[in-house]
Design a protein around this nucleic acid. Sequence first.
DNA 1: CCGTATCCCACCAGATACTG
DNA 2: CAGTATCTGGTGGGATACGG
Lengths: 117, 117
Amino acid sequence: MAGDVFDKNCPSRGVLEHVTSRWGVLVLAALGERELRFGELHRRIGGVSQKMLAQTLRTLADDGFVERTVIPAAPPQVSYRLTETGEQVAGHVVGLVGWIEQHLPEILAAREATPAR
Amino acid sequence: MAGDVFDKNCPSRGVLEHVTSRWGVLVLAALGERELRFGELHRRIGGVSQKMLAQTLRTLADDGFVERTVIPAAPPQVSYRLTETGEQVAGHVVGLVGWIEQHLPEILAAREATPAR
DNA sequence: CCGTATCCCACCAGATACTG
DNA sequence: CAGTATCTGGTGGGATACGG
C-alpha cells in the first residue's frame, strides 16, 4: 500500500515532485517557520513571481500540506499555514535545506576543484 | 558564511536545485542504499533516460556528492557511490522520500477531497 | 557497457497587465 | 492585498542514433 518512487507509474512520484519543485521546497521551508500571508511569502522567497507562488500554494494545498485561510477584510487578507501532515514533510525539507546552507562552503570548494569541462 | 536559500542570489539555491531536481533526488536515494553501476542505476530508476542520468550524475559529482569510478575492463564498468558529504545529503533525501512513500495513502485521500477546480 | 551527439518539443516559468 | 490572464521564450528532458 506504500508508494515506490523508483516505479515510474507510482503516484508518489507526483507528490515528490510537488514537494521538491523549485518553489515548493522554499514555500514549505518558509511556512515551517511560521504562518505567513501571501505578500509575506512573496517577499520572503526571493525571486518568486506571484503566478508561481499562487500555483505552488495551490498544488501544496491540494496534496493537503498547506491550509489557506481567508480573512474577510479590506484590504483582503489570505493566510497560509502548514497542516499536520504538512508540518511533517516540512520538517524533512527544513532539515535538507539547513544542511545545504551549513555545508555550502565545502560544496563550493568541491566545485572549484572540478577540472575543466 | 552559511548560505541563505531565501536569497535569490545565494549559490545555495543552485545546490538545492541539483539535489531536488527530478532525477537528482532519485539518484541520491538509490545510491543511499548502495554503490551502483550506471546500468544498474538506469534500471533502478524507472523512466530515466541515459542522457538525463549521465547529466544528473555529473552535476552531483561536481558538487562533490557522488564519486565516479572507472574499472578498466571489457566491457567497461563505471561505478557510482556517495562521498562522505553525499551520504549526509542523501540521508535527508532518503528520509523525505521514505516519509512520502509511507504517507502516500492519506495524501491521495486529501487530493480526492479537493473540490472541483 | 557506458556513455555522447543531435534533434526536437512540451511545458515551466518570467514579464506584464489587469481585477475584486 | 491577493491574486488571474495572456503572451512568450528558455530549457529540462525525451527519442533516436552513434561511438569508445
